[in-house]
């Protein structure tokens, strides 16, 4: 049993990670950090740089949390990657960050969060940026 967190190098992503760490601390479980990219553009801001990833790993090690950091680039959506990780690690909680979207933006782009909420087989904790969990 484990906790999956969808991580992005943004305020929302950081908030999600913080919330996930708090949850993991409560009852020491495996924390899986998923930071994926579809890999379909030359530059992807949502794909964290190596320094950030090693920073996260260092911190989790220091806190004594069992963890796994994944950066899959397989052409899949972030939502699918998170759901896949949840399936694979039999997650009991998924933590994601939310950000405001205009209705038009939602219509055109769809919403990763919505996709995860609808498809997940376990509780999903959605966190907003700048908000203590």
């Amino acid at each position: 049993m484990s906790i999956i967190v969808g991580y992005l190098p943004t305020p929302e992503g950081t908030a999600a990670l913080e919330a996930a760490i708090t949850e993991a601390r409560k009852n020491a479980k495996l924390l899986v950090v998923v930071n994926s990219s579809r890999g379909d553009a030359l530059v992807d801001k949502r794909y964290a740089v190596n320094e950030e990833i090693s920073g996260i790993e260092e911190r989790l090690t220091k806190e004594g949390i069992d963890h796994l950091v994944q950066q899959p680039v397989r052409g899949n959506d972030a939502a699918n990657e998170v759901l896949q990780a949840a399936e694979q690690h039999r997650a009991e909680l998924i933590v994601i960050g939310l950000r405001r979207r205009t209705p038009v933006g939602k219509l055109i782009m769809g919403s990763t969060a919505q996709h995860i909420l609808l498809e997940a087989h376990c509780p999903v904790l959605a966190v907003k940026a700048g908000q203590e969990p």
Binding site: R38, D40, G75, D77, I108, M109, G110
Partner: peptide, 9 residues
Amino acid sequence: ALGGRHYVR
């Protein structure tokens, strides 16, 4: 072919 999977969009 190039990997886009947002069929409707």
